[in-house]
């Protein structure tokens, strides 16, 4: 079983191993800042992996998953505001809140499909965004300053504790996803994506599976948001701005949406490009270093025009097979 998972998802395992040992690299070369970059990559990568359950495997393009990150983050922020510092409790709160919210939004949104689904999920996310902007008590859009949560036995202010907390939750989510995608549920979800009526003809209720997938993805985004709040020591509605939902989608498409590891690869490349492209431009064309997006934009177009199936598809890792092939 374990060996089987290893064979099927080589790229993901390699990334996890690299992430596990990355702090050794940074401490050897005295680059503590890069731990921070990688924490952000892991957090957004985790959210993107969650989104990809519905997005890549279920074929439901949700344009509102940043809202679940936001709800997760505010679960941490608001709990702490009222003196509930326990991080495990906050994670549980995030999961439960996002689960309930996921059921409610998913139930209404899944009445639609295609582009209509994209827009209705955006609509719900925008409502939540404006709701948190109007919460004056918690700082509105100026946000809420908070401390890192208190994970009993783990003092997050000690070096690397937060890094490994995020890493282990990411690893747990990854392993769960590998199992999920290969389970009966995962197979049916992917079958719904390629032909919903055939699944229905088999006597299954597609809505039930789609809704379950939607809720699981919402919960994962919520966990990511809850940890994001501790990482940032600050919560504001900015975390759930629609452009972040867009970022998550871009990360997935960039990495390859039919692969479990795709979103993580996408997050690594996307955020490293953000990090390095301006520096690089500053060396090559200093006059447009501030306008680095003029290079970044066409790069995205090039990935679409010249590659299929995102970077995982372009690189064509021979160890990695798509978990599901796209019906063209």
């Amino acid at each position: 079983m374990v060996l089987d998972l290893f064979k099927k998802f080589t790229t993901l395992w390699i990334i996890l191993v690299v992430l596990a040992f990355f702090p050794i690299f940074t401490s050897t070369f005295d680059l503590p800042f890069w731990n921070d970059v990688v924490m952000r990559i892991m957090l957004l990568g985790m959210a993107a992996m969650g989104l990809n359950i519905v997005f890549g495997f279920g074929g439901m393009v949700s344009f509102g998953h940043a809202a679940f990150m936001g709800v997760g983050a505010y679960c941490a922020g608001i709990s702490q505001y009222y003196g509930l510092d326990n991080g495990w409790y906050q994670l549980l709160m995030s999961a439960v809140s996002c689960g309930i919210l996921g059921i409610m939004i998913g139930f209404l949104a899944l009445r639609t499909s295609g582009i209509y689904f994209i827009m209705i999920t955006l609509a719900f996310a925008q409502m939540l965004y404006f709701f948190f902007v109007s919460l004056e008590q918690f700082g509105g859009d100026d946000g809420l300053i908070m401390d890192r949560s208190d994970f009993i036995f783990i003092d997050l202010y000690e070096p690397l504790r937060l890094y490994y907390l995020i890493f282990f939750i990411l690893a747990a989510v990854s392993i769960m996803l590998m199992l999920l995608i290969r389970s009966r549920f995962g197979v049916i979800l992917q079958a719904i994506k390629s032909n919903e009526s055939r699944v229905e003809a088999m006597g299954l209720n597609p809505l039930k599976f789609k809704l379950t997938g939607y809720v699981i993805s919402a919960v994962i985004c919520g966990l990511s948001g809850c940890l994001f709040a501790s990482w940032q020591e600050f919560v504001s509605p900015d975390i759930m701005h629609w452009t972040r939902s867009g970022d998550l989608m871009i990360i997935i498409i960039l990495g390859g949406l039919t692969y479990v590891a795709g979103p993580l690869v996408g997050a690594i490349v996307f955020l490293l490009l953000e990090e390095l492209l301006p520096d690089l431009l500053h060396v090559v064309f200093p006059s447009i270093a501030e306008n680095w997006m003029i290079i970044f934009g066409p790069l995205l177009i090039a990935v679409v025009l010249f590659g299929k199936g995102g970077l995982m598809g372009v690189v064509g890792n021979r160890f990695t097979r798509p978990a599901a092939r796209k019906d063209q």
């Binding site: 498409i253 934009g297 066409p298 995205l300 990935v303 679409v304 025009l305």
Partner: peptide, 16 residues
């Protein structure tokens, strides 16, 4: 999905 990514790239390009 590909269309979303490519036209998002176009937005960045035009704005810059």
């Amino acid at each position: 999905m590909d269309q979303v990514l490519a036209t998002f790239g176009l937005i960045l390009f035009f704005n810059e």
